[in-house]
Write a protein that binds this DNA or RNA. Structure first.
Lengths: 182, 182
DNA sequence: GTCAGATCTGACCGATCGGACAGTTATTGT
DNA sequence: ACAATAACTGTCCGATCGGTCAGATCTGAC
């Protein structure tokens, strides 16, 4: 055994995330993952009860981050809530770029998943915070637009340094929402 | 035969588009399509040489629309090009909502496809037109943001009438780009 | 050394996939 | 009426999928 034993689990998660992000969940087989990791397919199922369990564990941190943002937002109102929602979502999307890619590719597969059950409601609150509770056409549409803009830009690989990407995403989102960038 | 014979082909395409949009290309089997259409799996392969051929035919109109927009844009410059790019892309995305959904879900599957080979270059030109050729961070990021915002909003089902959706998408995109809505 | 338990694997399984093909049924021109 | 062609299907096939399992191999405590 060349590799320290306990490291294999982490390698599996990392390789799986890479493959899921580039080929999609359904487009990646356990054989593919095993090949990249350099172990047998059976080893994957020694550490994880199923392929879906790998996906669930990969998406858990992002889900927790989203939950934390939701909690932070519940104590804010008005302009403060808007700015916190935008910056919080941008930071989350940038921190979990590969996860966002997976999420967007396999929404149908993941929609029914219990671990992700709370996500739609949280995203709905997040969007509401961005448009300050507006339920008019403008508010609904722009909230969707910001979510899409930030997600797609983070998932794609724009040739821009992370710091610049962050400020431009925040400024762009605020512009979309009709607010003056600070 | 209850159904007029020549109609089957069209029914296959329509049902396949629905299924691809909701479950993804890889998440939809030929058996699934046949069941929805109400014919045998073999019939699908009588009208189409392969599953991929169905997908290719479904995406062709959207690809042609994108090509037409590209041609229209090549004759414009400056503000006119920006507005034409934004409105043209919004109209395209709204006209081909289900196709956009399929495209976003299965980018990895479709990236290497020959029929879609010209798309990345066209999209690059479209984004360039939106930001008036800017290659700075702001331009690159906002171009991505607009593409993502419009695509995701059209793919999702925002409870807003089409007319309102169109004007809000165009206005929102122009705001993102830092331009005054007309 | 040796034994127990954790780690890892080859071989196998049933299900499902996209696709091939011979053959049946309906339609049409004459 | 009757071929000829188009439309359609049941059945089979090899490949690949996620997952199981008995056993091989490694590791650390004593």
């Amino acid at each position: 055994m060349a590799r320290p034993a306990s490291a294999l689990r982490g390698h599996i998660l990392d390789s799986a995330l890479d493959l899921f992000a580039t080929r999609g969940y359904k487009g990646t087989s356990l054989h593919d993952i095993a090949q990249v990791v350099g172990c047998s397919k059976a080893s994957l199922l020694y550490y994880f009860v199923s392929k879906e369990a790998i996906l669930a564990e990969l998406l858990t941190p992002a889900g927790e981050g989203l939950g934390a943002l939701d909690a932070r937002l519940s104590g804010l109102e008005g302009d403060q809530a808007v700015e916190a929602a935008v910056t919080g979502f941008v930071d989350l999307a940038m921190r979990f770029r590969r996860e966002v890619k997976v999420l967007f590719q396999d929404i149908p597969v993941l929609a029914g998943h219990p671990a992700l059950g709370a996500v739609p409601a949280i995203v709905a609150r997040l969007m509401a915070a961005m448009v300050d509770g507006s339920t008019e056409s403008r508010g609904l549409v722009t909230a969707y637009m910001v979510i899409g803009a930030v997600s797609v830009t983070c998932a794609g690989d724009v040739p821009v340094p992370d710091e610049d990407l962050r400020t431009e995403l925040i400024d762009g989102a605020l512009r979309t929402l009709g607010r003056e960038p600070r």
